[in-house]
Design a binder for these strands. Structure first.
Lengths: 228, 228
DNA sequence: ACTTGTATTCTTGTATGCAAGTTGAGCTTA
DNA sequence: TAAGCTCAACTTGCATACAAGAATACAAGT
């Protein structure tokens, strides 16, 4: 006799599935989840779920409280603001070091990247992760030429802390064309070597989400953030 | 009949014990360890050991290779250099924003901190962690006044990636009085508002370990680092 | 009405047995 | 001697049973 057999997911797949749900806000900030609940949902034992939980916990997506339960973490606006500040400072400094003296070969790669961005933006339906992937490459090219590859990886690591925030921006506002335009302006500054304009542009670009969301953070989205 | 009963350690304690051994280099970079080995050593099952392993793995202290084994990670000099660069850029920028306009109250706290540093340095036997705790407070006070508390926490988080490197510095060179002197000079610059001197001093201070260790990294300590 | 104790039912933490993959020693064979 | 195969002894991943703390509903007593 053969029985229908569902091959269970492993801990990595559980991790990815949970992370996606958290980023999509299907699992909302503050929501309570348990190992058993997730284990039943994906037809696995608690072990791989716990493994995934521990990983998500170290990335501050969830908080495990012994003998009580596990919560999806609330967004921390102070943390988000300072991460944005951090990235602004680092990226401005790195770009200032290479601005105006980037070889044609690298500039061409940036132009190619911009074309890909334009292509994605012009589509009727835009997949956020697809755009952000190319977005990330644009900045990575700059850091690579500045010989600061690891630094970009570090910055990327911290992006996870406010990926959900960026997601709110899309849901609430959702204008990728604006980001694309900013990248174009940034490119012109990098090419021309306008060191003064760089700082202003960088500030504008990286604080975009914060500005666009504005007071919504304290009103309709207030439940998602830590109260001070 | 009563029997002698050893109450086992929990996963947090196992984590701390392992981390300490890794930082002390008792568990050397590149060394192979296994869940069973640690579980036997501390008289617990594999479960709390695995929990500790997962946490250490997310902090890049160890690397878990499925079905093969678990290794203490090698030091990555490129990563270390860029973390030092990152901290230099961030701390210089933050300090520039407050330099010369720090109220007496905050300056007094810094002076008090320096006195504690002096006290520790003058002892015959210096406990590294004790000094680094006060050292960290010195910088924390500055970030706190600059309203960048979270940013300092972020930087602290990344320090773990090169705590072992700093430990090599102590073992190989071990001169805390030098660090104390640098802090005193830094204080004078902060107090006086010498914005130009700050950048130079900061570079010197934060690149100290790198300079002191010098070529030893490639010679007698070479086994501890990733080969390129 | 209020307090208090209890029992049930959640939660996560731990111990243990088994599954599956990797490595390396030692035997076999040419 | 040297190459190749087999098997035993490891490794981590997963499933499951039990332990222990926390919260809640509820009944008994004041």
């Amino acid at each position: 006799m053969t029985s229908v057999h569902f091959k269970g997911m492993n801990s990595d797949e559980i991790y990815s599935a949970l992370k996606e749900d958290i980023l999509n806000l299907k699992l909302a900030p503050g929501q309570l989840i348990s190992e058993n609940e997730i284990a039943n949902k994906y037809n696995v034992s608690r072990t791989p779920v716990k493994t995934a939980f521990l990983r998500l916990s170290s990335e501050k997506f969830i908080e495990i409280v012994p003998q009580k339960g596990t919560y999806v973490t609330l967004l921390d606006l102070d943390l988000i603001k300072e991460i944005i500040y951090m990235r602004t400072v680092l990226e401005t400094t790195v770009l200032k070091g290479i601005i105006g003296k980037i070889p044609t070969e690298v500039l061409d790669r940036l132009v190619l990247n911009l074309k890909m961005q334009e292509e994605i933006v012009s589509k009727p339906i835009i997949e956020p992760s697809e755009f952000y992937k190319i977005d990330s490459q644009f900045h990575a090219i700059c850091f690579e030429y500045a010989n600061k590859t690891k630094l970009w990886e570090i910055i990327q690591e911290f992006q996870v802390y406010y990926t959900r925030f960026r997601m709110l921006d899309i849901v609430a506002v959702g204008r990728f064309d604006r980001l694309y335009e900013e990248h174009c302006q940034l490119f012109e500054i990098i090419e021309s070597g306008d060191s003064a304009g760089l700082e202003e542009m960088m500030n504008l670009h990286l604080h975009g989400n914060l500005n666009r969301l504005g007071d919504r953070i304290y009103n309709e989205l207030g439940d998602y953030f830590i109260k001070k």
